[in-house]
Design a binder for these strands. Structure first.
Length: 373
DNA sequence: GCGACAG
DNA sequence: ATCTTGTCGC
């Protein structure tokens, strides 16, 4: 079978590049940019991208205001006052922190391929390939893996994989993978942020022969607006059984009041009435988890594994351990508060890294606008 | 008041 | 997810 490939855009860069289309004397809004990306729900992500813009001379993020005309924040030196001054220098009239007659100054018609539209279609196609039945009988599930991510910074991810033996709970393997992340968190598009971290990690795990029989993923499976959460993406792309596990409901309806430990209740698709997941009470005094099919498992098997592997904790062991692993790994490399060229503290926890510190940075060659996975 | 959004 | 001290409850 041909290796599955999927093209994920560098949405951070794509969004920043859009800023250069704004004509002199005009502004735009977070929402307009989100619509240029293909989904107005990405407005907050646009804000995150602007807030971490490191090239103020190249990408004029000061030109982005709220759709009600209020100027909004400016993370660069001078904060909002500086943003207002720059806008006024461009001839934009501002009163009381708002752009006067915004409609006359706002720019909408971006030249764009609306990348998020393509990604939604990709999700729909992938949903059609999800196998909703188990390919193994429960007794043949010997090992269960868990995956999770942590973020040392908004554009840097650490993925972790842990596998445990069913029954004994013995930890069999643990691996992490750290890399740059160029796709922001956008509700319902989580897979495109995390796949570039998890796929390389899990392909390596598989090469090493350490891939567990079933994978528990910290994210939704078919319990998703387009029935294509990250657990399903991973399952289909790896052609491997996966289960989606989330702590907060993304989509679907269920009444979870008064649930007892061990109890489960079906989550239904509001549109069709189909059961697309299960609320699972794994801990007496904790909100339930929401479990769904990722790929090649039945909902029954998914729920059974989650319940069985959730000992005295809310999260099933493989995910809990993967969470610990990547959180710890992220912390070790976490940037100091001020972001800039801060020294990594020489505390005892820091691993002995003997990187040559004096390596001169080469001028960046033009980076790719998309990642092939 | 509306919308509601995993990580 | 991340930023964060102590505090309430079982």
């Amino acid at each position: 079978m041909a290796e599955e490939r999927i093209e994920i855009p560098d949405l951070r860069r794509y969004t920043l590049e859009l800023l250069r289309q704004i004509p002199k004397g005009k502004v735009t809004t977070y929402r307009a940019l989100a619509q240029a990306l293909g989904d107005k729900r990405a407005a907050r992500a646009v804000g995150q991208i602007m807030a971490t813009n490191e090239h103020l001379e190249v990408y004029p993020c000061y030109k982005v205001v709220h759709s009600d005309g209020s100027v909004g924040e400016y993370s660069a030196p001078g904060r909002t006052a500086a943003k207002i001054q720059k806008l006024q220098a461009d001839g934009i009239p501002i009163e009381d922190g708002r752009v006067v007659r915004l409609r006359e100054y706002v720019f909408h018609p971006f030249g764009t391929e609306k990348p998020l539209e393509r990604l939604r279609k990709l999700q729909e196609e992938l949903a059609g390939r999800v196998v909703r039945e188990a390919v193994l009988s429960p007794k043949d599930v010997r090992t269960v893996g868990g995956v999770d991510l942590s973020y040392p910074g908004p554009w840097e991810g650490v993925g972790a994989y842990v596998s445990v033996e069913r029954g004994t709970g013995k930890v069999l393997a643990g691996r992490t993978h750290r890399c740059e992340v160029t796709f922001p968190y956008i509700p319902t598009y989580l897979a495109f942020r995390e796949l570039p971290v998890l796929l390389p990690l899990l392909r390596r795990v598989r090469e090493e022969g350490e891939l567990a029989d079933v994978l528990l993923v910290d994210g939704s499976g078919v319990l998703h607006h387009r029935h294509a959460g990250i657990a399903s993406h991973l399952g289909v792309l790896l052609d491997h059984p996966t289960v989606g596990v989330i702590k907060r409901l993304l989509y679907g309806s269920v009444d979870v009041k008064g649930m007892q430990k061990g109890e489960t209740r079906p989550v239904r698709d509001p549109q069709t009435g189909d059961v697309i997941g299960m609320a699972v009470k794994t801990h007496e005094r904790a909100d339930p988890l929401y479990v769904s099919i990722g790929h090649k498992v039945s909902l029954d098997l998914a729920v059974r594994l989650v319940l069985e592997l959730s000992g005295k904790h809310k999260l099933p062991e493989p995910i809990r351990r993967a969470h610990e692993l990547c959180t710890r790994e992220a912390h070790v490399h976490r940037r100091p508060k001020g972001e800039g060229a801060g020294e990594i503290d020489a505390g005892s926890a820091a691993p002995a890294s003997s990187e040559p510190q004096g390596t001169p940075k080469k001028p960046k060659k033009p980076r790719q606008m998309a990642l092939d996975l």
